[in-house]
Measured scan of single mutants.
Amino acid sequence: MEQATVKWFNAEKGFGFIERENGDDVFVHFSAIQGDGFKSLDEGQAVTFDVEEGQRGPQAANVQKA
């Protein structure tokens, strides 16, 4: 698992990007966020996640709020 920071997340559209420590951004979809209830992330929030290869490149999976 990697630890990184949420760059931005649009709760209405259900997706955003996580900024990795190496500077690369990773796409995150609300369905990858672990937990119950409304799944959203806040800008600047610390998260841990795995990286999977998606249809359009790397994307976050198993996202957990740190």
Results as ranks from 00 to 15, higher is better:
E12K: 14
D24Q: 13
F30Y: 13
P58E: 06
E52I: 15
G35Y: 08
I33S: 01
F9Y: 10
E53S: 10
D36H: 13
F38G: 05
V28E: 01
G37Q: 06
A4Q: 04
F15G: 00
N62W: 08
N22R: 09
R56N: 11
F30I: 07
F38D: 07
A46C: 15
I18A: 00
V63D: 04
N10A: 06
E52Y: 12
D42H: 15
D25L: 15
Q55N: 12
Q34W: 10
R20I: 08
F27N: 01
N22A: 09
T5R: 13
Q55D: 12
D24W: 08
F15I: 08
F27P: 02
N10T: 05
P58S: 08
G37M: 05
N62R: 09
V47P: 01
E12M: 12
G23E: 08
A66M: 15
D50M: 14
G57Y: 04
A11M: 10
A32W: 03
V47C: 05
Q34S: 10
I33E: 01
V6L: 04
V63G: 00
Q3F: 15
A61W: 05
G54W: 05
D50W: 15
M1P: 13
F17R: 01
Q55E: 13
F49M: 09
I18H: 00
E2L: 14
S31C: 07
G16E: 02
F49V: 04
A60Q: 02
H29R: 01
G14D: 03
G35M: 12
E19R: 15
D50K: 14
A32D: 07
K65Q: 10
A32G: 07
I18R: 00
W8I: 01
G16I: 04
V28H: 02
G57R: 06
G44C: 08
F15W: 15
M1T: 13
F15Y: 15
V47I: 08
G37I: 06
T5K: 13
Q59K: 08
K7Q: 01
I18C: 07
G57L: 03
G14H: 02
N10V: 03
N62S: 06
A60F: 04
E2K: 10
I18G: 01
E43A: 15
Q34H: 10
H29L: 05
E53H: 12
S31T: 13
W8E: 05
R56I: 07
F49L: 07
F38T: 08
F9R: 00
V47K: 00
T48G: 04
L41N: 02
N22K: 11
L41D: 03
V51Y: 10
F17S: 00
E21T: 12
Q3W: 15
G37R: 04
E21C: 13
S40M: 10
M1R: 15
R56L: 10
G54H: 07
D24E: 13
G23L: 08
